[in-house]
Amino acid sequence: MANGSGRVCRHTVVDVFNRRESVMPSRRGPKNPLNHEPEAVTYAREQAGLTKTQLAAACGVALSLISEIESGTRNATPSMIRKLADALNCPPVVLERKRTQDTHPVTEFDGVDSR
């Protein structure tokens, strides 16, 4: 295959793709747990009567970001949660992940029951 300089390129598209895969780092998944509830974002958007495209435009972001936030493959930053809440006319707390305290009360200490 000629490359415009008269020389023949011996690389195929597959070679270039495989090289790119080995050189480029893979994207990490979202933070676990997420800052937002993906289902809540979708529900609020549907209740507001907006499409993903309309919500993206209202927030000033790409459609792909909205899709990733709703699917849970991308974490919504606190500022993004505020933008979504403003566009959806709902309080930010509706869209935020509900935190639960991971409490494991100690009922026994050094063999003595503390109850």
Rank of each mutant, 00 (worst) to 15 (best):
A44K: 07
T103C: 09
C59R: 07
K52R: 13
T77A: 11
T42R: 15
R45M: 11
L34K: 00
L84Q: 09
T51E: 01
A85W: 13
T51K: 02
R115S: 09
A57M: 02
A87L: 05
T73D: 09
G49D: 02
P91F: 08
R97K: 13
P78R: 00
E108D: 07
H104T: 11
R97Q: 12
V93C: 03
D113W: 00
K31E: 14
D86F: 07
G49T: 02
A76V: 09
A57H: 04
S67M: 08
N35G: 05
R115M: 00
E68Y: 02
E96Y: 11
V61A: 06
G111Q: 07
Q47L: 14
A76Y: 05
A40V: 06
Q47I: 09
C59T: 06
G111N: 06
T42L: 15
F109P: 00
G29D: 04
G60A: 01
G72K: 06
D113T: 00
T51R: 01
L65R: 06
E37F: 08
R82L: 15
K31C: 10
K31H: 07
K98F: 03
A40P: 05
S67G: 13
R45H: 13
V106D: 03
R45E: 11
K83M: 11
V106W: 03
N35V: 07
T77H: 06
R74L: 12
L34D: 00
P91H: 14
A85S: 14
E46A: 06
K98L: 05
T103P: 02
T53V: 10
T107R: 11
N75V: 10
R97P: 01
I66L: 05
D102W: 01
C90D: 04
D86R: 13
C90N: 04
H36L: 08
P33L: 08
C90S: 04
E39Q: 13
V93I: 09
T53G: 06
K52F: 01
P78C: 00
R28K: 11
G29V: 01
P30F: 12
T107V: 12
R97C: 04
A44R: 13
L95S: 13
Y43S: 13
T100A: 08
E68M: 07
G60N: 02
A76W: 03
I66K: 03
V106T: 08
H104E: 11
A85I: 12
K31T: 15
A56R: 03
N89C: 08
Q101C: 00
M80G: 03
P30D: 07
S67A: 14
P91N: 08
K31G: 03
P91D: 14
T42Q: 14
A44L: 05
T73H: 10
N32V: 15
L95Y: 06
L84E: 01
C90I: 09
S114N: 00
S71V: 03
L63K: 10
